[in-house]
């Protein structure tokens, strides 16, 4: 005999209920709990080092904390109102956007072209890979010192070359020039980063389906068409990942600017991260610094999400 139940019909009889259903439940619980148990340590670490500070940052952004006082006065959205009216925040954001516009696509394109050239069978592949990747393993401080020397107004090689070829009027104190300092730093940043894109793309090229290449060649496609229509589509997931990664990096750029110009001269190289640092640690405005941090986080999330969504929709 069976009786109706929300899930259908189950047989009558206490034995079935006692002996069969709980065992099934136990199995189901084990099936669900065991993976959770494995994930738990990582989850705890994530919660402790990512979620908890993030929640704290949101809280700090709603206070007037100076970074030292034990008391944090709740001031609601006052910091957010101040931020949107702060001209230096907008100037810093503008610099971030310039960095992103020029600094996101350029290293990916350079990396893609170089990876394709090396992949196509050029001699000295390991040597090229090592040379291109070398700036990536350098600490930002080292990169900053190298470029500080390259741009040095008195004896830097760039100015020396310009003077040697009769372009004295072009030579200048690159990192002290209001109009050029940001672009000078951007170039240094690109130099330090394109090797990363190169190595990732070179690795991705190893997984390219050569049969498609051969088929395209038989169909009469030239090398550029094969590259554009066969290679690039197969690299799409990696290109998406790299672009998203670089995009987020564009909002978070800090170290190379901090060790070279500290945002100067006259805020010419200030980006959101250096401005945030100054507010929080130099001007004792930790609450406002947290608000700027929230701004960086939101911008990074929105930009990455939008880019990845558009990319997936395109695919």
């Amino acid at each position: 005999m069976c009786r109706p139940s929300p899930g259908g019909f189950i047989p009558d009889g206490p034995e079935w209920i006692v002996t069969v259903r709980p065992r099934s439940l136990r199995r189901s619980w084990r099936r669900q709990a065991l993976p959770l148990l494995f994930v738990l340590p990582a989850l705890l670490v994530y919660a402790l080092f990512i979620l908890w500070p993030f929640v704290n940052t949101i809280y700090f952004s709603l206070t007037d904390w100076d970074g030292a006082q034990p008391v944090k006065n709740f001031i609601g959205l006052a910091n957010y109102r101040e931020m949107f009216a702060d001209p230096l925040m907008w100037l810093s954001l503008r610099h971030n956007l310039i960095w992103i516009a020029l600094g996101t696509l350029t290293p990916v394109v350079i990396g893609l072209v170089l990876a394709n050239l090396v992949w196509s069978g050029v001699k000295g592949r390991i040597l090229f890979r090592t040379i291109y990747f070398m700036p990536v393993v350098m600490a930002s401080v080292v990169v900053g010192i190298i470029w500080h020397w390259i741009y040095h107004p008195l004896f830097g090689p760039i100015n020396e070359v310009l003077r040697a070829v009769g372009l004295e009027e072009v030579a200048r104190g690159w990192l002290g020039d209001y109009d050029w300092a940001l672009y000078a730093l951007l170039l240094a940043g690109l130099w330090a980063y394109f090797g990363f894109c190169f190595v990732i793309l070179l690795a991705a090229l190893q997984g390219i389906d050569m049969e498609l290449h051969d088929a395209a060649m038989i169909d009469g496609a030239g090398s550029f068409k094969r590259f554009w229509h066969v290679t690039v589509p197969q690299l799409a997931p990696v290109l998406t990942m790299l672009t998203a990664f670089t995009l987020i990096g564009g909002f978070n750029v800090f170290d190379i600017i901090f060790v070279t110009t500290r945002g100067g001269p006259a805020n010419a190289t200030d980006v959101l991260a250096t401005y945030t640092y100054r507010q929080a640690f130099t001007l004792n405005e930790a609450g406002y610094g947290a608000t700027l941090t929230m701004m960086i986080t939101v911008l990074s999330l929105v930009a990455s999400y939008t880019f990845i969504t558009l990319r997936e929709r395109g695919q």
Binding site: D177, Y178, G264, P265, A266, N267, A268, R278, T282, L283, N284
Partner: peptide, 20 residues
């Protein structure tokens, strides 16, 4: 105070650059 120094930091450089 630190805020006053920050104005000195930014603004004197801005005078040299001819923007203030």
């Amino acid at each position: 105070p630190a805020g006053f120094n920050q104005v000195q930091w930014d603004s004197f450089a801005a005078i040299f650059q001819g923007i203030k």
